[in-house]
Design a protein around this nucleic acid. Structure first.
Lengths: 344, 344
DNA sequence: TCGCGATGGTTAATCGTTTAAATCGGGGAG
DNA sequence: CTCCCCGATTTAAACGATTAACCATCGCGA
């Protein structure tokens, strides 16, 4: 039971393969009479013909495949959303995506680039799970799009979250609720992870705009998990009453989760006694916390779509400055007005 | 700057393309003299030759690509672990994986199957994010492996978590700690989601083995998120003291999170007053809860590896019964002995 | 009657490899 | 000195589509 080829269809329909090709691919089918078209289609159906994309690819030099290199598809739900966005766009345009997970190893990245270009993918998407500036692997083709990361020296289209504005929005939310003593629980210093600095910049900017003096004691750092958030929150809440924050903006939802824990332990109720804002909108945390966490969402799905769209050439993109994708505020129930100040 | 082909290498080395092919692919290279081999390799390097896999695939009828159809890569961290496992194995054997996300739509599944077989993938993996029994999409090739799901009528290799034994292990853990009144917070009834029934069976079995009479009041169901867990836990803890459970086994970690919330609100401390065991080992929840949650891990990475191994033919598999993959207990801090019984 | 433009196909080259079969020079056996 | 074989390489035929170039037929106007 050998594969049925175009020649078999041609034989069955009593025409040449050229004709079959034209009617089945649609190209130049205006040159073939409707009766013949019908006959060919019927024959194809009858013999169970399926196009061989490999052969077509060889001839046309188009594979309708896009390579997607990802550093870490395993441990974050973010990955999935980016993949989903990229995949949806690819499907909408009849493309397939070839995924390679590299765990961030340079050697694997190089191999991936080689394997993918050998497979003649038409473009590539180079994705990172955390907003970073990266040095592109050697041999990366020109038609590559950077997703959730930015090449150190530019030259490629890239899309990253607008973390500065996100940090600003979160802080603004707190200011709007009436808070004046707003802490920022930051990530550890890491040159590659740029989100931290950007969100901090947004935080400072809004503080300044609101005429709130920056208090260095309210900017603390910790490991970016619940435990780190716990430690940081302890430090903040140990501050003397008049310097203590009434609101905490956390680098991510996991740290916010830690802050919740500390609040509970101290008998503080969120948001009455303490307002908390997170970042990331991790479904498994933010929505499930008690009370549900107000946070800033990372536009992973949208970034995935955007990247694939420029990879497919259906969207133009700048090659020097990355696109900053909006990070929407997700309003839930962890922000309220500050507790009534003493003496009011 | 056209692509450099084998013919270019051949010209540069002063040999025929057949020779180049043989030395570069390694096949029959024992028939080519070492000097020539060296010369060819040098020439290839010099002109920057890269193999065109499309052409090779057409000729050899082997693409070294595996199709992976997934129903939902976006919203669960599980997806990533399966993908990572599958990807690692593929890479180890020099294969590439073509990913298609279908969101579970039948129509998209059929299209995916068509697109992938058109692309001549050598095998497929059909993955679901939740342990299910499924009816395979039409046209699914014989060399497909089912991952985290099982075809309704068998006939294909499949791997699923051993949920029965997982449920048993969780319950056993609680029994071993001394509990006699152990509740099971179950998922809603859903014929396709088989994990629920299996874990329940394991729970019942261990109860029986331990000589503990089953109390129907301790088997409650709820939506599988924190809110559902909350509601269920309320019901359980509202039971009169002598019927109230001292331990709760939850269908998943999110529900366990809800149980934590209720415990906190009632001033019960975990695990002193109430022991809790979850399921899934969701990194973002289980490890971050206070106290860290004892739970049962789902072997997604291992299942992904297994599926890809049989897809590549490097491992034999039964086509009638699915492989049951072990679900390891993750011991953390949410289980302790029951509170001292009244009158002891 | 002839020429010409549509109309509706067909022929054959091509994409870049792989590989079975043919070739070719040289050395050893008879 | 032949003949045969062997090792090293080349020739050429696939693989299954696409597509530029070509061709046959028909109808119609001059």
């Amino acid at each position: 039971m050998a594969r049925v080829r175009m020649a078999d269809v041609a034989a069955a329909a009593g025409v040449s393969t050229a004709t079959v090709s034209m009617v089945l691919s649609g190209a130049g089918s205006d040159r073939i009479s409707p009766q013949t078209q019908e006959r060919v289609r019927a024959a194809a159906e009858a013999v169970g013909y399926k196009l061989d994309s490999v052969a077509r690819s060889l001839r046309t030099q188009k594979t309708r495949m896009i390579g997607l290199i990802s550093d870490n598809v395993a441990t974050t739900p973010f990955a999935g959303r980016m993949l989903a966005g990229a995949n949806d766009v690819a499907r909408e345009h009849g493309y397939l995506v070839v995924l390679v997970n590299t765990d961030g190893y340079q050697e694997q990245e190089r191999q991936a680039v080689d394997a993918l270009s050998g497979q003649r993918v038409e473009a590539m998407v180079y994705a990172r799970m955390w907003h970073r500036v990266v040095t592109p692997p050697a041999g990366l083709p020109a038609d590559t799009v950077f997703l959730d990361c930015r090449p150190a020296d530019g030259g490629w289209p890239a899309v990253v979250p607008d973390d500065r504005e996100g940090g600003a929005a979160a802080t603004r939310e707190l200011v709007a609720a009436g808070h004046r003593r707003i802490a920022y629980v930051d990530a550890p210093v890491d040159d590659e992870v740029v989100a931290s600095g950007l969100r901090y910049a947004g935080y400072r900017q809004v503080l300044a705009e609101a005429g709130i003096a920056f208090d260095a004691a309210l900017h603390v750092r910790g490991v970016t998990d619940a435990w780190g958030g716990r430690v940081a929150a302890e430090v903040l809440l140990d501050l003397p009453a008049e310097r203590r924050p009434t609101a905490i903006f956390c680098f991510n939802d996991r740290m916010a989760m830690g802050a919740y824990t500390v609040a509970h332990r101290r008998g503080l109720v969120v948001p009455d006694d303490l307002s908390i804002v997170g970042y990331d909108d991790q479904q498994l945390i933010a929505a499930e916390l008690d009370p549900p966490l107000t946070t800033v969402a990372l536009p992973h799905y949208e970034m995935g779509r955007w990247a694939m769209e420029v990879a497919l050439g259906v969207r133009e993109a700048d090659r020097t400055d990355p696109l900053l994708m909006d990070c929407p505020m997700i309003l839930r129930a962890s922000v309220g007005p500050p507790p009534t100040p003493v003496g009011t």
